[in-house]
Design a protein around this nucleic acid. Structure first.
Length: 418
DNA sequence: AAATCGGGGGG
DNA sequence: CCCCCAGATTT
């Protein structure tokens, strides 16, 4: 099969008679990944493969719009394996939109703790309230209304509406974009807004028409189509080592024909990583209690605006600077006992966490600390508060060396989502 | 158009 | 280590 690359070079398919005269060649090149005459065969091939190869995932066992929505938010920039345990716990804790809307934000954040991108949880909570207030507690079926909800962009709106309601919207995510880039041998940065729009149009052009499937035949619903495209990208058409031998649509793939599948799409532009060190103090009194803050500081965003230990930023591990900070803010003069460092990343920042254990007779009374948002939970129980992984890593280092921190914490092992 | 937001699995 | 992942929002 003759499969010339799209976007660059000549298009040998543009001379196929009078029908294409009215279509601008430039538009056609960007939108037409599969020749129209072969579209049905392509769709059948992919859907048949998907019917047999799809992974059994929790969110594929339901079409409840709420559950589909939760799964799609969690899956944003996050791998399936990481999402699964969170998805199960979250739905156990918040089984309905109503339950989510009624919950406190911190309860939602606590269920999200460790998953990252915490604005997702904040927007999820806001959107649940809006759905209860404006949509009678039902996830909207119209795409304009879905897009108006916080945290829902084009991908998530198309995903939820197609999977839950069968509405004909094509999704475009990283997987689909990579599949399209290889099918069409599209070079260049896919994330440029203009290019992404073209890819969205191309994805829509591939979407099967709604039709009643014959008995036993693969369904042609948009939700299955979208999931089939994403499944292909997630399992076979992977970024590093595409398995073209097993690909059900390899015969339509221009990148495969050219032997450049491995080199597409072009790598994403990445900002240069910034390295920094955060020295944190794990205060610990005789009863195993510690002190956490939740205030706006220079580095509070590095803790995702969640509860965190008192900390200072410096070029490298800085116990003296941390000691000065503890004295000036809390009046603490106790010794600092170094703990094993831990690594943490926030987007492009690579953080070296250098924690110190500070044993004190008494924790500073919250009212005298000069900071409003202070709590003194047991160190072994801080996961009852919304914390980021950075705080969890610091706590783990302290728990490993301080027997007293475990004293009297028989309840600490109980379900943290109580 | 560019910057920002987490965290982890796999090469 | 480096890469990128079922993206959205803000500037």
């Amino acid at each position: 099969m003759n499969v010339p690359p799209l976007g660059v070079g000549a298009c040998t398919r543009c001379d196929n008679g009078a029908m294409s005269v009215t279509v601008p060649a430039a538009t056609q090149r960007k939108t037409e990944i599969i020749p129209p005459a072969e579209l049905t065969a392509f769709q059948t091939q992919l859907l048949t493969w998907f019917a047999g190869a799809k992974r059994d995932l929790d969110w594929r066992r339901t079409r409840d719009p709420y559950r589909v929505w939760i799964s799609e938010i969690m899956l944003q920039q996050t791998r399936v394996a990481a999402v699964l345990p969170y998805y199960r716990r979250f739905l156990k804790r918040f089984p309905t939109i109503d339950a989510l809307a009624r919950a406190r934000l911190d309860a939602v954040l606590r269920s999200w703790a460790g998953l990252g991108y915490y604005s997702r949880a904040r927007n999820l909570h806001r959107a649940a309230k809006q759905i209860v207030a404006r949509h009678d507690g039902e996830f909207p079926r119209r795409i304009e209304e879905a897009l108006a909800l916080p945290g829902i962009g084009h991908y998530t709106a198309a995903a939820v509406l197609s999977i839950a309601y069968g509405e004909p919207h094509a999704v475009l995510d990283g997987n689909v974009a990579r599949v399209l880039a290889r099918l069409g041998a599209i070079r260049g940065d896919l994330r440029r807004p203009k290019r992404w729009q073209d890819l969205a149009a191309a994805a829509n052009a591939l979407l099967p028409e709604q039709a009643v499937p014959a008995a036993g035949a693969p369904t042609t619903e948009a939700g299955d189509w979208n999931q089939a495209m994403m499944e292909l990208g997630a399992t076979l058409c992977t970024p590093r080592a595409p398995q073209c031998d097993a690909c059900p649509v390899a015969r339509w793939c221009r990148a495969h024909a050219l032997g450049i599948a491995l080199h597409l799409p072009a790598p994403r532009h990445k900002p240069k990583p910034i390295r920094l060190t955060l020295s944190a103090a794990v205060l610990l009194d005789r009863r195993g209690r510690t002190l956490l803050l939740r205030q706006k500081t220079d580095h509070s965003s590095l803790f995702s605006r969640l509860w965190h230990f008192p900390a200072i930023q410096a070029p490298k591990s800085a116990p003296k600077k941390l000691a000065r900070y503890l004295k000036s803010v809390f009046g603490i003069t106790a010794a600092l006992e170094p703990l094993p460092p831990a690594r943490h990343t926030v987007t492009f920042r690579r953080i070296l966490l250098t924690p110190f254990l500070v044993r004190v007779a008494k924790l500073p009374p919250p009212k005298l600390t000069g900071v409003r948002r202070v709590r003194t939970p047991r160190l072994a129980e801080i996961e009852r508060l919304p914390i980021s992984s950075a705080t969890r890593k610091i706590a783990a280092a302290a728990l490993a060396v301080s027997p007293e921190s475990h004293r009297g914490t028989a309840e600490a092992t109980r379900e943290p989502y109580g």
